[in-house]
Amino acid sequence: MLNLTLYDLIIRFGAYLLVAAIAGLLAQVVLRAMGGKASPEGGGAGYGVFDGVGLIGALIFKQGWGRSPQPEPGSMWGGRLGLVVWVLVTLALTLLAVWGLRYLRPTIASFGTNVFTQGAISILNVSTDIGIWFALISLLPMPPLLGGNILLALFPGLRPAARGFYWPGTALVALFVGLGFAEATLAPAWATLRNWMLA
Rank of each mutant, 00 (worst) to 15 (best):
L145P: 01
A23S: 13
W86I: 06
A33K: 10
G100I: 12
G78Y: 04
P156G: 13
T128D: 04
N125H: 08
P71L: 04
L9S: 09
L2E: 11
F176R: 05
I56V: 11
G57H: 03
W99M: 15
N3Y: 12
A187E: 09
I108S: 10
A21P: 00
R105Q: 11
I137A: 00
L104F: 08
V49Q: 08
V87A: 10
K62C: 00
W99Y: 15
E72D: 06
F13C: 07
T192E: 15
T90E: 04
D51C: 14
G180P: 02
F50M: 06
A21I: 10
W133A: 07
G42R: 10
T192P: 03
W86E: 05
T5Q: 11
T113P: 01
T107N: 08
W77P: 03
L59H: 05
P188R: 15
F165M: 06
L198S: 04
V126M: 10
L140H: 03
W99C: 07
L152M: 08
W65V: 00
I108C: 10
R163I: 15
W77Q: 02
A184R: 08
L140V: 12
T192M: 13
W77N: 14
F50Q: 04
P188K: 13
A20V: 05
T113R: 08
F13K: 01
L172I: 01
G119L: 14
L88A: 12
G43H: 11
A23Y: 07
G66F: 01
P69R: 12
A58E: 04
A153E: 12
W133D: 01
V115P: 00
G180C: 06
T113Q: 14
G43F: 13
R32T: 14
P188V: 14
G24S: 03
E72G: 02
A153C: 05
G180Q: 04
R105S: 09
R80E: 15
G66Q: 03
F116T: 01
V98R: 02
P106A: 08
F50P: 01
G43L: 14
I150L: 08
L139N: 08
L18C: 05
G82Q: 05
S68M: 02
L17Q: 11
V177K: 09
I123M: 05
W65F: 07
G178L: 07
L2M: 13
